[in-house]
Amino acid sequence: MSTGRVLMANKAGAYVIKLTGDVRMTLCTTLDNCLKKMVEDPVFTSVIVDLTEAEGIDSTSLGMLAKVSRLATPAMGHVPTLISSRPDITRIIETMGFRDRVFVIVPHSNVDEEPDASLNEETPQPVDEMSARDRVLEAHKILMSLNEQNRQTFHELVECLENQPTH
């Protein structure tokens, strides 16, 4: 698998976040920075998440995607679109409870929906141990809030992280 990357485009407040390669926890700080830029943009109107070139995605990254939706939905007035053309990735996303509640999942891009802007690779942000712990914890708490199956799946991980010393 190739190293994961975060690419982003913005045209007049319409954003595209594209994740490529092996999307892992190490990209969460970078993804969180993109999210912050997006929601702080006074002309933010929409976001599309594109996973068509993702080769794999871990649960922390899925939790961060749920966070994207959680913050963008109120501003947009509806859930954002997620493009996933790989059956294995789509199955994982659906298993987590994303379909219709978190994202409208489509298999390919609707050219009319995407901003006409070029994607730029976001500079990977370093992840220190405390930041990584905090992001993993936040992401899994978000996943747990989506459905009972996720709550059961991630309960022990969250409990373990919460009980770790913070220094």
Rank of each mutant, 00 (worst) to 15 (best):
I92F: 09
L146E: 02
P115G: 05
H155L: 10
S109A: 15
F154D: 00
P80K: 01
E121A: 12
D134W: 00
T60V: 10
R70K: 08
K37C: 12
D116W: 05
N147G: 07
M96T: 10
T52F: 04
M130L: 13
D116L: 12
V49Y: 15
E129R: 01
Q152R: 10
V136E: 00
V127Q: 08
P126W: 02
P124I: 03
P107C: 05
I89P: 11
R99V: 02
M130G: 04
N120A: 14
N150Y: 06
E113S: 07
D134S: 08
V158P: 02
D88F: 10
A75M: 14
V136T: 08
I142K: 03
V104Y: 14
S59E: 02
V127I: 10
S109D: 11
T90A: 06
D128S: 06
E53A: 07
L157C: 03
K141V: 04
P115I: 00
E114F: 10
I142H: 03
I89K: 01
V106Y: 01
T123H: 09
V158H: 07
T73P: 01
R133D: 14
V158R: 05
V106D: 09
T60L: 00
R133C: 06
H108W: 05
K67Q: 11
S118L: 12
H155S: 08
R133T: 12
F44E: 09
M96P: 00
E138V: 04
P74H: 07
E114H: 06
P87C: 00
T45Q: 15
T123D: 03
P74Y: 14
K37S: 14
E40V: 03
G56T: 05
Q125E: 09
E122S: 14
K67H: 05
T95Q: 11
E148P: 01
V102G: 02
E129Q: 03
C160M: 11
